[in-house]
Nucleic acid binder design. Sequence first.
DNA 1: ACATAATAGCCAATCGATTGGAATAGGCCA
DNA 2: TGGCCTATTCCAATCGATTGGCTATTATGT
Lengths: 373, 373
Amino acid sequence: MVRRVVSANGSMRQGKSATTVFGSSRSESRAAVLKDVALRAGVDASTVSRVLRGDERKPARAETRERILQVARELGYRPNSVARSLRTRKTEAIGLVIPDAGNPGFAEIFKGVQTATAQTGWHVIVVEGRGPNHPDLGWERLVFEGRVDGVLVLTASLRDPLVQRVARSGVPLVLVNRRSDGVVGSVVVNDARGAEVAVDHLVSLGHRRIGHIAGPPTIDTGRRRTAGFRAAMRKHALPLRNSWIAGTDYTEAGGAEAARSLMDKSGPDLPTALYVASFLSGIGAMKVFKDAGLRIPHDISIIVSDELALAAHTNPPLTTVFMPVRRMGEAAATMLLAAMAQEPVADIVLPDEPQLVLRASTAPPGEGWRVSR
Amino acid sequence: MVRRVVSANGSMRQGKSATTVFGSSRSESRAAVLKDVALRAGVDASTVSRVLRGDERKPARAETRERILQVARELGYRPNSVARSLRTRKTEAIGLVIPDAGNPGFAEIFKGVQTATAQTGWHVIVVEGRGPNHPDLGWERLVFEGRVDGVLVLTASLRDPLVQRVARSGVPLVLVNRRSDGVVGSVVVNDARGAEVAVDHLVSLGHRRIGHIAGPPTIDTGRRRTAGFRAAMRKHALPLRNSWIAGTDYTEAGGAEAARSLMDKSGPDLPTALYVASFLSGIGAMKVFKDAGLRIPHDISIIVSDELALAAHTNPPLTTVFMPVRRMGEAAATMLLAAMAQEPVADIVLPDEPQLVLRASTAPPGEGWRVSR
DNA sequence: ACATAATAGCCAATCGATTGGAATAGGCCA
DNA sequence: TGGCCTATTCCAATCGATTGGCTATTATGT
């Protein structure tokens, strides 16, 4: 690790020492409820309810309506969503299950989800789910205690028992960037095509010895990127060596490990270019190669999947394949909203073309790696 | 509505064509409720409730208890959280209002919040609030429709009317990394000390002409970093020039703009080192300087606030001041939980020392900027 | 002017769980 | 055997909003 931590001399401060107890000020006046409005407007609560939610089937007299609206405004009335949910059996909330908030790709997906849900007034409960083995209390409860009307799952491995159980229970569920056996309803980007774009680019630069750092085989996205990679290599009639493919999870540490294993397995016969299935892994791999004395892109070209703002600032700046991740989040949320409205769902692959974002980590092959070990 | 999209080049694909309507499978058997368990166990619903939640004051006979537990297990009974919330007037959910999910610092705070809430089983509803002017329907409703028991706000400017309104309404609220006039209950890191650590470092390298890219003056954190910067400069008896200080928001574009304005204002008299109040701004500023032909750190040293994993991979790797951001999220959530339990709250500054993380973007001053324009 | 229809608004049940008070049964003591 | 106590369990109200059914009131038609 590069981190050299220098601690400064100790000091401790505390702000204003003022303290308050919320309970004291809270009771100043409890929030108005439907009955309060009804009483003050001299009508029944049911009438208030109908007026406020604009029930067409039983309109109120214009005069009554005005009076009710007026009183509601005066009292600052807001309908209690919990009571409403109990009666209507709708929470207007969805769950978003993510593997790790630290992964920068997640933020994009979340933004996509927000744009779809914010418009319709739905709320998003975010939970970090920890793998299929863990007790995973968090999102288990979310669903089975009826706190949400549906879930978006970004963590599912191919056979995640919890996912399958939820799907069977009938709670609307959409997988994002994932698929799971026997579960219908997923949105993924065109991973195979993304891999192809990457390989095409490397080939067009003149590379023929191309390797791959793959995602975990338990995750569908990882598999499809790898399959796409293999297909693209076949398309160009290029050799595929097992020693040029290393699997890993979607982390920086995993990428570093994969890079080391690649160097170990290949010896002096390292590929001249690498397609890495995740941004963070790419970062980790790049560091390992540089530390080993390889120059990027001179000795080895690197192209990674998923475009992030930070790719422009790495050393060297990373060539990436932009995958429409935000769109994916939006499409998934839209699909979930549809599913919750009893509409049919399907497994879809976003038709958006992955885009090559050209930077400095790829170039025509140099003389290759000839460092004695 | 499920969008069926057709792309230009006809690469549209659709996965398995199987589709299902959730409604059909859902009704296979509606979830068991309290009454179902009661009926089947031959007891009253109230008894079931007391047994399942382990009510000490009215214990059931051992035999009855076993029977109830058995039936509950058979039926897979889970208490409905909406009904429970209505009765108990507790949602066991909190709101987390963030300015922009794209900011990588947010992920850390979120993780801190999660560690505090996950243990106690509370859920987190995340909303992107858009500034104090916007209609901001999102988190307005969250609070006033009783969907959460409290909120953590990461967006508050010094006098955000919505924040003040919520605080007055008595809904427990804790500001994170922010403060707001007249609102008690906030957790911030020691920004002044962070700035001091940065300046001390630059001074120890031999810099005397030190500039600052500040956060927005409407945000308390930004102000305190700037105040800390000024104090540290005074401590070292170093000159402070207004042309060496530029304000901006916490974005990459803002940082770039600030850097340009700094070069414009200073002319050939640019500082030899810069303390930047946010990671993203630092990235943006660094790019502008490099594009202008400055070498970092030879011509200008840069140190930024907030440590992120990606700082190690920028070009050059960024020297940062690690602020205990995750701890801040955790402390804020803990404080909020306390506030919701009617305990007193205060404004606190985390005592954790900011840590210098030394990398390659800072070095002793070179000969300075002497490029004619 | 009378019958009928339309309209406005009220009543009461409901969603599902919690909780204070009442009721029943058995046990104990005199 | 009668009275009292305690351990269990049941009853019913409650949280706040929604909604089908019903009544009272007004409008319409002949």
